[in-house]
Write a protein that binds this DNA or RNA. Sequence first.
DNA 1: TTGGAATGTCAACAACGCTGACATAAAATA
DNA 2: TATTTTATGTCAGCGTTGTTGACATTCCAA
Lengths: 167, 167
Amino acid sequence: MAEGGGQSSESLLFLTDEQLRKGIEAMFFAYRGFTADPDRILEEQGYGRAHHRAVHFINRWPGTTVNNLLAILGVTKQSLNRVLRSLIEDGLVESRVGTRDKRERHLFLTEAGMALEQALSEAQRRRMRAAYRMAGPEAVTGFRQVLEAMMDPEMRRHFDDAKETGG
Amino acid sequence: MAEGGGQSSESLLFLTDEQLRKGIEAMFFAYRGFTADPDRILEEQGYGRAHHRAVHFINRWPGTTVNNLLAILGVTKQSLNRVLRSLIEDGLVESRVGTRDKRERHLFLTEAGMALEQALSEAQRRRMRAAYRMAGPEAVTGFRQVLEAMMDPEMRRHFDDAKETGG
DNA sequence: TTGGAATGTCAACAACGCTGACATAAAATA
DNA sequence: TATTTTATGTCAGCGTTGTTGACATTCCAA
Protein backbone atom coordinates (compact mmCIF):
# COMPACT_ATOMS: atom_id res chain seq x y z
CA MET A 1 0.00 0.00 0.00
CA ALA A 2 2.97 2.34 0.32
CA GLU A 3 3.40 2.54 -3.44
CA GLY A 4 0.73 3.23 -6.06
CA GLY A 5 -2.45 4.90 -4.88
CA GLY A 6 -2.44 3.86 -1.26
CA GLN A 7 -0.91 5.83 1.57
CA SER A 8 0.26 4.94 5.04
CA SER A 9 -1.42 6.36 8.13
CA GLU A 10 1.54 8.55 9.01
CA SER A 11 1.94 10.19 5.60
CA LEU A 12 -1.63 11.49 5.74
CA LEU A 13 -0.62 14.41 7.85
CA PHE A 14 0.90 15.66 4.60
CA LEU A 15 -1.98 15.67 2.14
CA THR A 16 -0.59 16.36 -1.30
CA ASP A 17 -2.77 17.80 -4.04
CA GLU A 18 -2.12 14.53 -5.83
CA GLN A 19 -3.65 12.46 -3.05
CA LEU A 20 -6.62 14.77 -2.85
CA ARG A 21 -7.11 14.60 -6.60
CA LYS A 22 -7.27 10.82 -6.41
CA GLY A 23 -9.96 11.07 -3.77
CA ILE A 24 -11.89 13.44 -6.00
CA GLU A 25 -11.69 11.16 -9.01
CA ALA A 26 -12.60 8.16 -6.85
CA MET A 27 -15.79 9.94 -5.80
CA PHE A 28 -16.62 10.67 -9.43
CA PHE A 29 -16.09 7.15 -10.73
CA ALA A 30 -17.64 5.47 -7.70
CA TYR A 31 -20.80 7.54 -7.82
CA ARG A 32 -21.34 6.43 -11.38
CA GLY A 33 -21.08 2.80 -10.34
CA PHE A 34 -23.34 3.49 -7.41
CA THR A 35 -26.17 4.75 -9.64
CA ALA A 36 -25.63 2.43 -12.61
CA ASP A 37 -27.81 -0.51 -11.52
CA PRO A 38 -30.91 1.45 -10.47
CA ASP A 39 -30.54 3.59 -13.60
CA ARG A 40 -31.06 0.51 -15.76
CA ILE A 41 -34.25 -0.44 -13.95
CA LEU A 42 -35.54 3.11 -14.06
CA GLU A 43 -34.94 3.39 -17.78
CA GLU A 44 -37.17 0.39 -18.46
CA GLN A 45 -40.00 2.11 -16.62
CA GLY A 46 -39.39 5.47 -18.28
CA TYR A 47 -38.21 7.08 -15.07
CA GLY A 48 -35.03 8.87 -14.00
CA ARG A 49 -32.98 9.41 -10.88
CA ALA A 50 -35.32 12.08 -9.59
CA HIS A 51 -38.07 9.47 -9.42
CA HIS A 52 -35.75 7.10 -7.60
CA ARG A 53 -34.90 9.69 -4.95
CA ALA A 54 -38.55 10.57 -4.38
CA VAL A 55 -39.59 6.92 -4.06
CA HIS A 56 -36.67 6.20 -1.76
CA PHE A 57 -37.47 8.91 0.76
CA ILE A 58 -41.25 8.42 0.65
CA ASN A 59 -40.57 4.80 1.52
CA ARG A 60 -38.22 5.95 4.24
CA TRP A 61 -40.75 8.35 5.79
CA PRO A 62 -44.28 7.36 4.81
CA GLY A 63 -46.71 10.24 5.14
CA THR A 64 -44.04 12.88 4.69
CA THR A 65 -45.12 16.16 3.12
CA VAL A 66 -43.95 17.73 -0.13
CA ASN A 67 -42.20 20.39 1.91
CA ASN A 68 -40.27 17.84 3.96
CA LEU A 69 -39.20 16.03 0.86
CA LEU A 70 -38.02 19.30 -0.66
CA ALA A 71 -35.67 19.95 2.23
CA ILE A 72 -34.18 16.47 2.01
CA LEU A 73 -33.78 16.36 -1.75
CA GLY A 74 -32.48 19.90 -2.05
CA VAL A 75 -34.44 20.79 -5.17
CA THR A 76 -37.21 23.28 -5.84
CA LYS A 77 -40.79 22.29 -5.21
CA GLN A 78 -41.60 22.87 -8.86
CA SER A 79 -39.00 20.32 -9.90
CA LEU A 80 -40.19 17.78 -7.35
CA ASN A 81 -43.81 18.40 -8.28
CA ARG A 82 -43.30 17.24 -11.85
CA VAL A 83 -41.80 13.97 -10.64
CA LEU A 84 -44.52 13.42 -8.02
CA ARG A 85 -47.24 14.11 -10.56
CA SER A 86 -46.06 11.33 -12.85
CA LEU A 87 -45.63 8.90 -9.93
CA ILE A 88 -49.15 9.67 -8.73
CA GLU A 89 -50.63 9.36 -12.22
CA ASP A 90 -48.92 5.99 -12.64
CA GLY A 91 -50.31 4.79 -9.32
CA LEU A 92 -46.98 4.41 -7.50
CA VAL A 93 -47.55 7.20 -5.00
CA GLU A 94 -50.67 8.32 -3.16
CA SER A 95 -51.13 11.93 -2.08
CA ARG A 96 -53.52 12.58 0.81
CA VAL A 97 -54.65 16.05 1.84
CA GLY A 98 -53.62 16.80 5.41
CA THR A 99 -56.33 16.64 8.07
CA ARG A 100 -54.78 19.14 10.47
CA ASP A 101 -53.46 21.46 7.76
CA LYS A 102 -55.31 21.10 4.48
CA ARG A 103 -52.52 22.84 2.56
CA GLU A 104 -50.22 19.91 3.14
CA ARG A 105 -50.11 16.76 1.03
CA HIS A 106 -48.97 13.57 2.76
CA LEU A 107 -47.22 11.09 0.51
CA PHE A 108 -47.39 7.30 0.59
CA LEU A 109 -46.17 4.48 -1.65
CA THR A 110 -48.84 2.21 -3.10
CA GLU A 111 -48.25 -1.52 -3.48
CA ALA A 112 -46.82 -0.92 -6.93
CA GLY A 113 -44.66 1.88 -5.56
CA MET A 114 -43.27 -0.38 -2.87
CA ALA A 115 -42.50 -3.01 -5.48
CA LEU A 116 -40.47 -0.55 -7.54
CA GLU A 117 -38.70 0.73 -4.43
CA GLN A 118 -37.74 -2.80 -3.52
CA ALA A 119 -36.35 -3.53 -6.97
CA LEU A 120 -34.31 -0.31 -6.97
CA SER A 121 -32.95 -0.57 -3.45
CA GLU A 122 -32.18 -4.26 -3.80
CA ALA A 123 -30.05 -3.51 -6.86
CA GLN A 124 -28.26 -0.76 -5.02
CA ARG A 125 -27.77 -2.81 -1.86
CA ARG A 126 -26.27 -5.61 -3.90
CA ARG A 127 -23.63 -3.24 -5.26
CA MET A 128 -22.98 -1.75 -1.84
CA ARG A 129 -22.75 -5.16 -0.21
CA ALA A 130 -20.24 -6.36 -2.80
CA ALA A 131 -18.11 -3.24 -2.32
CA TYR A 132 -18.19 -3.63 1.46
CA ARG A 133 -17.13 -7.24 1.21
CA MET A 134 -14.28 -6.44 -1.17
CA ALA A 135 -13.01 -3.65 1.04
CA GLY A 136 -13.47 -5.35 4.40
CA PRO A 137 -15.04 -4.31 7.72
CA GLU A 138 -12.37 -1.79 8.74
CA ALA A 139 -12.76 0.04 5.45
CA VAL A 140 -16.52 0.39 5.83
CA THR A 141 -16.24 2.38 9.03
CA GLY A 142 -13.75 4.76 7.44
CA PHE A 143 -15.89 5.07 4.34
CA ARG A 144 -18.89 6.18 6.35
CA GLN A 145 -16.85 8.60 8.44
CA VAL A 146 -15.36 10.41 5.47
CA LEU A 147 -18.71 10.58 3.68
CA GLU A 148 -20.38 12.06 6.71
CA ALA A 149 -17.62 14.64 7.09
CA MET A 150 -18.05 15.62 3.46
CA MET A 151 -21.75 16.50 3.77
CA ASP A 152 -23.05 20.02 4.24
CA PRO A 153 -24.06 20.48 7.88
CA GLU A 154 -27.80 20.73 7.09
CA MET A 155 -27.66 17.53 5.08
CA ARG A 156 -25.76 15.85 7.88
CA ARG A 157 -28.75 16.64 10.07
CA HIS A 158 -31.07 14.76 7.70
CA PHE A 159 -28.61 11.90 7.66
CA ASP A 160 -28.40 11.79 11.45
CA ASP A 161 -32.20 11.65 11.59
CA ALA A 162 -32.02 8.57 9.44
CA LYS A 163 -29.47 7.03 11.79
CA GLU A 164 -31.62 7.47 14.88
CA THR A 165 -34.67 5.95 13.26
CA GLY A 166 -32.59 3.15 11.88
CA GLY A 167 -31.09 2.24 15.31
CA MET B 1 -19.18 3.18 17.95
CA ALA B 2 -21.53 0.40 19.05
CA GLU B 3 -24.52 2.70 19.31
CA GLY B 4 -25.91 5.15 16.74
CA GLY B 5 -24.87 4.64 13.14
CA GLY B 6 -21.49 3.00 13.65
CA GLN B 7 -20.84 -0.72 13.66
CA SER B 8 -18.11 -2.87 15.10
CA SER B 9 -15.78 -4.83 12.88
CA GLU B 10 -17.24 -8.16 13.88
CA SER B 11 -20.87 -7.29 13.22
CA LEU B 12 -20.09 -6.42 9.61
CA LEU B 13 -20.24 -10.02 8.59
CA PHE B 14 -23.98 -9.56 9.06
CA LEU B 15 -24.88 -6.69 6.78
CA THR B 16 -28.45 -5.68 7.49
CA ASP B 17 -30.54 -3.87 4.91
CA GLU B 18 -30.61 -1.05 7.40
CA GLN B 19 -26.83 -0.70 7.43
CA LEU B 20 -26.70 -0.83 3.66
CA ARG B 21 -29.42 1.79 3.39
CA LYS B 22 -27.38 4.12 5.54
CA GLY B 23 -24.42 3.65 3.25
CA ILE B 24 -26.63 4.46 0.27
CA GLU B 25 -27.98 7.64 1.83
CA ALA B 26 -24.49 8.63 2.92
CA MET B 27 -23.36 8.42 -0.70
CA PHE B 28 -26.29 10.57 -1.80
CA PHE B 29 -25.80 13.32 0.77
CA ALA B 30 -22.00 13.28 0.55
CA TYR B 31 -21.96 13.58 -3.22
CA ARG B 32 -24.07 16.70 -2.95
CA GLY B 33 -21.58 18.22 -0.53
CA PHE B 34 -18.74 17.11 -2.77
CA THR B 35 -20.09 19.03 -5.78
CA ALA B 36 -21.55 22.03 -3.91
CA ASP B 37 -18.47 24.27 -3.85
CA PRO B 38 -17.46 23.92 -7.51
CA ASP B 39 -21.12 24.28 -8.50
CA ARG B 40 -21.19 27.77 -7.02
CA ILE B 41 -18.10 28.84 -8.98
CA LEU B 42 -19.43 27.30 -12.17
CA GLU B 43 -22.75 29.07 -11.84
CA GLU B 44 -21.05 32.45 -11.77
CA GLN B 45 -19.39 31.65 -15.08
CA GLY B 46 -22.55 30.22 -16.61
CA TYR B 47 -21.19 26.68 -16.68
CA GLY B 48 -22.33 23.37 -15.23
CA ARG B 49 -20.86 20.13 -13.95
CA ALA B 50 -20.27 18.82 -17.43
CA HIS B 51 -17.87 21.72 -18.03
CA HIS B 52 -16.12 20.97 -14.76
CA ARG B 53 -15.57 17.34 -15.69
CA ALA B 54 -14.22 18.23 -19.12
CA VAL B 55 -11.85 20.84 -17.72
CA HIS B 56 -10.69 18.47 -14.98
CA PHE B 57 -9.70 15.66 -17.30
CA ILE B 58 -8.20 17.90 -19.98
CA ASN B 59 -6.00 19.32 -17.24
CA ARG B 60 -5.22 15.79 -16.10
CA TRP B 61 -4.22 14.60 -19.57
CA PRO B 62 -3.24 17.55 -21.76
CA GLY B 63 -3.45 16.74 -25.46
CA THR B 64 -6.06 14.03 -24.96
CA THR B 65 -8.51 13.48 -27.80
CA VAL B 66 -12.28 13.85 -27.81
CA ASN B 67 -12.54 10.08 -28.08
CA ASN B 68 -10.39 9.51 -25.00
CA LEU B 69 -12.40 11.98 -23.01
CA LEU B 70 -15.60 10.23 -24.08
CA ALA B 71 -14.45 6.93 -22.62
CA ILE B 72 -13.51 8.52 -19.31
CA LEU B 73 -16.61 10.65 -18.91
CA GLY B 74 -19.02 7.96 -20.07
CA VAL B 75 -21.21 10.26 -22.12
CA THR B 76 -21.94 10.45 -25.83
CA LYS B 77 -19.68 12.47 -28.09
CA GLN B 78 -22.62 14.68 -29.03
CA SER B 79 -23.14 15.61 -25.41
CA LEU B 80 -19.46 16.27 -24.82
CA ASN B 81 -19.23 18.25 -28.04
CA ARG B 82 -21.72 20.85 -26.86
CA VAL B 83 -19.68 21.44 -23.72
CA LEU B 84 -16.36 21.57 -25.55
CA ARG B 85 -17.75 23.98 -28.12
CA SER B 86 -18.64 26.54 -25.45
CA LEU B 87 -15.32 26.09 -23.67
CA ILE B 88 -13.45 26.63 -26.94
CA GLU B 89 -15.55 29.65 -27.89
CA ASP B 90 -14.87 31.17 -24.48
CA GLY B 91 -11.15 30.62 -24.88
CA LEU B 92 -10.71 28.15 -22.03
CA VAL B 93 -9.83 25.15 -24.19
CA GLU B 94 -7.77 24.89 -27.35
CA SER B 95 -8.47 22.20 -29.94
CA ARG B 96 -5.60 21.24 -32.24
CA VAL B 97 -6.02 19.02 -35.29
CA GLY B 98 -3.88 15.89 -34.98
CA THR B 99 -0.68 15.73 -37.01
CA ARG B 100 -0.52 11.97 -37.34
CA ASP B 101 -4.28 11.49 -37.68
CA LYS B 102 -6.06 14.60 -38.90
CA ARG B 103 -9.46 13.30 -37.75
CA GLU B 104 -8.44 13.63 -34.14
CA ARG B 105 -8.67 16.82 -32.10
CA HIS B 106 -6.17 17.22 -29.28
CA LEU B 107 -7.43 19.24 -26.34
CA PHE B 108 -5.46 21.67 -24.14
CA LEU B 109 -6.36 24.18 -21.47
CA THR B 110 -5.45 27.81 -22.18
CA GLU B 111 -4.17 30.09 -19.42
CA ALA B 112 -7.75 31.08 -18.64
CA GLY B 113 -8.78 27.43 -18.66
CA MET B 114 -6.04 26.55 -16.20
CA ALA B 115 -7.14 29.40 -13.96
CA LEU B 116 -10.70 28.08 -13.84
CA GLU B 117 -9.48 24.55 -13.27
CA GLN B 118 -7.39 25.75 -10.34
CA ALA B 119 -10.30 27.59 -8.77
CA LEU B 120 -12.58 24.57 -9.13
CA SER B 121 -10.15 21.95 -7.94
CA GLU B 122 -8.92 24.10 -5.07
CA ALA B 123 -12.50 24.43 -3.80
CA GLN B 124 -13.00 20.70 -4.08
CA ARG B 125 -9.67 19.88 -2.47
CA ARG B 126 -10.49 22.14 0.45
CA ARG B 127 -13.68 20.18 1.11
CA MET B 128 -11.92 16.86 0.68
CA ARG B 129 -9.06 17.92 2.93
CA ALA B 130 -11.47 19.00 5.67
CA ALA B 131 -13.37 15.71 5.45
CA TYR B 132 -10.13 13.71 5.61
CA ARG B 133 -8.98 15.61 8.66
CA MET B 134 -12.30 15.19 10.43
CA ALA B 135 -12.36 11.46 9.73
CA GLY B 136 -8.70 10.71 10.38
CA PRO B 137 -6.00 8.78 8.48
CA GLU B 138 -7.40 5.29 9.09
CA ALA B 139 -10.75 6.34 7.68
CA VAL B 140 -9.24 7.71 4.49
CA THR B 141 -7.76 4.37 3.52
CA GLY B 142 -11.10 2.66 4.03
CA PHE B 143 -12.92 5.37 2.15
CA ARG B 144 -10.75 4.89 -0.90
CA GLN B 145 -11.01 1.12 -0.76
CA VAL B 146 -14.79 1.07 -0.67
CA LEU B 147 -15.06 3.67 -3.44
CA GLU B 148 -12.75 1.70 -5.67
CA ALA B 149 -14.72 -1.48 -5.03
CA MET B 150 -17.92 0.30 -5.98
CA MET B 151 -16.73 1.36 -9.45
CA ASP B 152 -17.59 -0.51 -12.62
CA PRO B 153 -14.54 -2.51 -13.73
CA GLU B 154 -13.94 -0.36 -16.84
CA MET B 155 -14.03 2.80 -14.77
CA ARG B 156 -11.67 1.24 -12.26
CA ARG B 157 -9.23 0.89 -15.14
CA HIS B 158 -9.35 4.61 -15.82
CA PHE B 159 -8.90 5.25 -12.14
CA ASP B 160 -5.91 2.93 -11.91
CA ASP B 161 -4.34 4.78 -14.83
CA ALA B 162 -4.62 7.93 -12.80
CA LYS B 163 -2.96 6.23 -9.88
CA GLU B 164 0.09 5.16 -11.87
CA THR B 165 0.63 8.59 -13.35
CA GLY B 166 0.04 10.17 -9.98
CA GLY B 167 2.50 8.01 -8.01
C1' DT C 1 -62.40 40.17 8.31
C1' DT C 2 -58.68 41.39 5.99
C1' DG C 3 -53.59 40.90 4.79
C1' DG C 4 -49.61 38.29 4.87
C1' DA C 5 -47.23 33.84 5.10
C1' DA C 6 -47.08 28.98 3.91
C1' DT C 7 -48.09 25.08 0.88
C1' DG C 8 -48.58 23.24 -3.37
C1' DT C 9 -49.62 23.52 -8.80
C1' DC C 10 -49.00 25.14 -13.62
C1' DA C 11 -46.01 27.30 -17.27
C1' DA C 12 -41.92 28.25 -19.45
C1' DC C 13 -36.79 28.21 -19.74
C1' DA C 14 -31.76 26.22 -19.33
C1' DA C 15 -28.26 22.46 -18.71
C1' DC C 16 -27.07 18.21 -20.26
C1' DG C 17 -28.11 13.55 -21.05
C1' DC C 18 -29.73 10.97 -25.57
C1' DT C 19 -30.35 9.32 -30.95
C1' DG C 20 -29.96 10.39 -35.84
C1' DA C 21 -27.78 12.43 -39.89
C1' DC C 22 -23.69 13.92 -41.79
C1' DA C 23 -18.71 15.65 -43.23
C1' DT C 24 -14.07 14.40 -43.32
C1' DA C 25 -10.00 11.48 -42.88
C1' DA C 26 -7.98 6.98 -42.62
C1' DA C 27 -7.88 2.19 -43.64
C1' DA C 28 -9.23 -1.82 -46.12
C1' DT C 29 -10.20 -3.90 -50.34
C1' DA C 30 -11.20 -4.72 -55.14
C1' DT D 1 -5.49 3.34 -58.08
C1' DA D 2 -10.42 3.66 -57.19
C1' DT D 3 -13.96 2.41 -54.15
C1' DT D 4 -15.97 0.92 -50.02
C1' DT D 5 -15.84 0.63 -45.04
C1' DT D 6 -14.53 2.40 -40.61
C1' DA D 7 -13.31 6.07 -37.31
C1' DT D 8 -13.52 10.77 -35.57
C1' DG D 9 -15.86 14.74 -34.75
C1' DT D 10 -19.95 18.28 -35.73
C1' DC D 11 -24.81 19.83 -36.21
C1' DA D 12 -29.85 19.29 -35.23
C1' DG D 13 -33.47 18.02 -32.36
C1' DC D 14 -35.65 15.56 -28.25
C1' DG D 15 -36.37 14.16 -23.08
C1' DT D 16 -35.28 14.53 -18.12
C1' DT D 17 -34.69 17.43 -14.52
C1' DG D 18 -32.85 21.39 -12.70
C1' DT D 19 -34.39 26.64 -12.49
C1' DT D 20 -37.62 31.16 -11.76
C1' DG D 21 -42.24 33.36 -12.17
C1' DA D 22 -47.24 33.51 -11.55
C1' DC D 23 -51.01 31.78 -9.08
C1' DA D 24 -54.75 29.20 -6.09
C1' DT D 25 -55.70 27.59 -1.58
C1' DT D 26 -55.33 27.54 3.31
C1' DC D 27 -53.84 29.08 7.66
C1' DC D 28 -52.83 32.59 11.02
C1' DA D 29 -52.32 37.09 13.01
C1' DA D 30 -53.63 41.91 13.30
